[in-house]
């Protein structure tokens, strides 16, 4: 049993089953909080995927909003209501949005990459605010989706969306883990450390970076789709840079050593957010800023590095 769980696929499946069972016992507010943690966590997982290649996107709001708006429009205008289909569609639309920029951005590293992605997301924000047909700065509402052809009853809506978020994020987490361990995943890490060497070994760094950007965009779109279904409302704020900043915050808090850590970090942020809005409603940004400074100062490799470190030490002993 223990050996079986050491395999990422089975560990992921077991984790999903556990969370699905646990969900039945959770109060509604906590279910919602977990759903949002999962949705936002997927977006941050995309940033972690980019971070492994050495770049940080400061504009994932672009694909988060792209996926979210696409899903809301499909539901309202095209009558597509199936939640699974919408989730997937959100990812695909976001990936298609990222595609034309991938080749250009793949040439940039460091702060340039961060700033250019930030600029892109702010362009979308500007467009959304000015587009009256999409509700301008107020956004618009989306009706509740169906799942596998069934309507979702009011009493169950919280749990169903939670379950969807758990399954989708679980599957993407497993896929991400497989990708991180793959040949391409290892080369991503090598690019982070020594790009020149990778080119001199015959691999194209810009193609790897472009592919990573599109994969991260897919994840951002999926996260956006899940978030809008849970919130029932979308607005340009999805593409605002402080939204992107929170995704980056979660990736920094998680570090790039563990996939699971990303979701833990996302959950921590949601907890802090809901407590701050209850107790310090006017200084939530300040709380976040101070929290971020503390993490960068004392845990620069993220919480993931802590238990990956434990594991390594344990293996070293046995």
């Amino acid at each position: 049993m223990k050996r079986l769980l050491a395999h990422p696929v089975w560990a992921g499946v077991a984790g999903m089953a556990l969370l699905l069972a646990l969900g039945a016992a959770l109060p509604r507010w906590l279910l919602f909080l977990c759903t949002m943690s999962a949705a936002n966590g997927i977006v941050s997982l995309g940033i972690v995927l980019l971070m492994r290649g050495g770049v940080v996107s400061f504009g994932q709001g672009l694909v988060f909003a792209g996926g979210g708006y696409a899903v809301a429009l499909m539901a309202n205008k095209l009558g597509v209501t199936d939640a699974l289909l919408l989730t997937f569609a959100g990812g695909v639309v976001a990936a298609l949005m990222a595609l034309p920029f991938a080749a250009l951005l793949a040439r940039y590293r460091g702060i340039f990459f961060s700033m250019l992605t930030l600029a892109l997301s702010m362009v979308l924000y500007g467009v959304l605010v000015k587009t009256e047909s999409l509700g301008g700065s107020d956004g618009f509402n989306m009706s509740r989706p169906t799942i596998l052809g069934m309507r979702i009853a009011d009493a169950w809506s919280g749990y169903v969306l939670y379950a969807l978020a758990v399954v989708v994020s679980g599957v993407l987490a497993i896929l991400a883990r497989i990708y991180f361990e793959s040949a391409r995943g290892l080369v991503s890490l090598a690019i982070r450390e020594n790009e020149l060497r990778v080119e001199y070994l015959g691999a194209s760094t810009s193609r790897v970076m472009a592919a990573n950007f599109v994969i991260a965009a897919f994840m951002g779109g999926v996260g956006g789709a899940l978030a809008i279904m849970a919130l029932g409302h979308i607005e340009p704020q999805f593409s605002y840079w402080t939204t992107s900043g929170e995704f980056v915050f979660v990736s920094i808090l998680a570090g790039h050593y563990s996939v699971f850590a990303v979701f833990v970090a996302s959950f921590i942020l949601e907890l802090v957010r809901s407590f701050s809005s209850a107790y310090f409603p006017n200084t939530w940004q300040m709380v976040l800023g101070i929290f971020l400074l503390i993490v960068i100062r004392f845990l620069p490799r993220g919480i993931g590095s802590v238990w990956v470190g434990w594991q390594a030490r344990k293996e070293g002993r046995s």
């Binding site: 702060i111 961060s114 900043g245 980056v248 006017n282 800023g289 101070i290 960068i296 620069p300």
Partner: peptide, 24 residues
């Protein structure tokens, strides 16, 4: 406190500062 760290991490430090100053 943060001199000498990775330049992207330094951007995040100033981002934190931005958040704090915004509320202040």
């Amino acid at each position: 406190v943060f001199y000498g760290r990775d330049e992207v991490l330094l951007v995040l430090v100033t981002y934190a500062l931005f958040l704090i100053l915004e509320d202040v």
